[in-house]
Simulated assay, not measured.
Amino acid sequence: MAGGMDGQEAMGAPPSADAIETQARAVIARLPEAFRAHLGDVVLVVEEEADAETLDALGIDHPLDLTGLYHGRPVGEKSAFDSGALPDRIHLYRQAMLAEWCESGVRLDDLVAHVTIHEIGHHFGLSDDDMHALEAAVAD
């Protein structure tokens, strides 16, 4: 090929974990205040992929099948006796998100928003319908 291109450079480098985290934090910043007020202690972590222990616990065979995970108890299930618990965590898995982005053809920022809101939805114990409504509100 001319110029030594092998076709891989055409799309540019895949987004870094930092870039995905920036997108996810922008999604969180657009959430209604009622949701943001309860997310102060939630830790957002972007990792390359889920570890074997996490995949085994969920019965998932391949790390590219898990784009995100919420660790913690939904807001409505928390109690005063949780004081020694680790903070709730939202994990986003970069490799799985990149794979889904390539396979689905959706915009990466839309995919990051979808996964982030889905995991936040677990934090609040939301139904799938509630999560879709929240996604629509954030997209505006």
Rank of each mutant, 00 (worst) to 15 (best):
A24E: 03
R25Y: 01
T67N: 06
G76I: 01
E48I: 00
D6R: 10
E135K: 11
E48A: 14
P63L: 00
D130W: 08
L64T: 07
L98Y: 00
V27Y: 03
A99K: 13
C102T: 10
M5N: 13
S83W: 13
A50W: 05
W101K: 02
D109C: 06
L98V: 11
G3M: 10
R25A: 09
Y93M: 08
M5A: 12
R25V: 02
P63Y: 07
L69N: 00
D110I: 09
A137Q: 13
F124E: 11
A133Y: 06
M11W: 08
A26S: 13
T22N: 11
F35Q: 07
D82L: 01
H91W: 14
Y70F: 15
R107C: 09
A80L: 10
E49P: 02
M5C: 06
D140M: 04
R30P: 01
A29K: 02
A34L: 04
D110R: 11
D128N: 06
D65H: 04
A34T: 10
A57E: 12
P63F: 02
T67H: 11
D18V: 08
V115W: 00
A133N: 08
E135Q: 14
E47I: 04
K78M: 15
A80N: 03
H71T: 02
V27C: 07
P74E: 14
A19G: 09
T67K: 02
P15Y: 04
T54H: 01
H114W: 06
E103K: 05
R94W: 04
P15A: 08
H91G: 04
C102Q: 13
M131T: 15
D51W: 01
Y70C: 07
D88K: 13
V42R: 05
G72A: 06
S83C: 06
G68I: 05
A50L: 06
M97C: 03
C102N: 06
Y93E: 04
G4K: 05
M5R: 14
D6N: 11
A19E: 15
E48F: 00
A133C: 01
A99M: 03
L39D: 04
A24G: 07
D6Q: 04
T22Q: 14
E9G: 12
D140K: 13
A136I: 05
R36H: 10
V45N: 01
L58S: 09
D51N: 14
A133F: 03
L39V: 09
A13L: 12
D56F: 01
A13C: 02
A17V: 00
V75A: 13
I28P: 02
H71G: 04
R25N: 08
L64V: 09
L55P: 08
D6K: 12
H71K: 10
Q95C: 02
L44N: 07
D109F: 02
A26V: 00
I120T: 14
V138T: 15
V106N: 10
R107W: 11
V46A: 07
D140N: 05
D129W: 03
I20T: 01
E77R: 12
A17C: 11
G3C: 07
V112I: 15
A99F: 10
D41E: 15
